[in-house]
């Protein structure tokens, strides 16, 4: 008898507590910047594409939903010719972001990606590429890499000596 009354009291008490229901979509939930949602491809501080088509994101992807093809620009940069993410398969695990050596691929706090046509869940490079740097503002891969590109020759990257003069006999 006592436990039944206690239960009734508990239920009654809940009638006065605030509701947990969120009035989505009128009311938007808070998503932290680290939330793992829609994937984007970012640009470096100079506004150039960060992705160098190294294929690590595709390799680490547990559901194999990333496919890309490398090409090379006239200035020597590696870029992705095609970059496809099949969001019908993506599980938003964030491994691709962890694997990316250039901070190009990033997950964003956006999850509203429902579609009526499944084919629309394929995001191609033009859908993925944004114009900002995303979460990592300063990183510029080609300023650290030894590969020469137009405007940054050999020996001009961070912590590099000038190219060796192979004709020098100095010790």
């Amino acid at each position: 008898m006592k436990s039944q009354l206690e239960t009734l009291a508990k239920v009654l008490k809940h009638s006065f507590s605030p509701a947990d229901t969120v009035q989505y979509p009128e009311q938007q939930p808070y998503l932290s910047p680290r939330y793992r949602g829609r994937i984007v491809l970012t640009r470096d501080p100079d506004g150039e594409e960060r992705c160098v088509a190294c294929n690590l994101c595709a390799t680490v992807c547990p559901v194999d939903c990333i496919a890309l093809q490398k090409t090379e620009l006239a200035d020597g940069r590696w870029v992705a010719e095609t970059f496809d993410i099949n969001f019908a398969r993506c599980i938003m695990c964030g491994f691709c972001e962890e694997a990316c050596p250039t901070h190009a691929i990033q997950l964003t706090p956006d999850f509203e990606m429902a579609e009526y046509d499944r084919q629309n869940l394929l995001y191609r490079k033009e859908h993925l590429l944004i114009s900002g740097t995303g979460k990592y503002h300063d990183y510029n891969f080609y300023q650290i890499s030894g590969k020469a590109i137009a405007g940054k020759g050999k020996g001009e990257a961070q912590r590099e000596l000038a190219p060796v003069d192979i004709k020098s006999l100095l010790p």
Binding site: N55, A58, T59, C61, V63, D64, C65, I66, A67, L68, T82, D84, I85, N86, A88, R89, R118, Q119, L121, L122, R124
Partner: peptide, 14 residues
Amino acid sequence: RESGRTALSSYIDI
């Protein structure tokens, strides 16, 4: 380790 199995041909058909 082959990658992209579920995305490689999805531009043809998902």
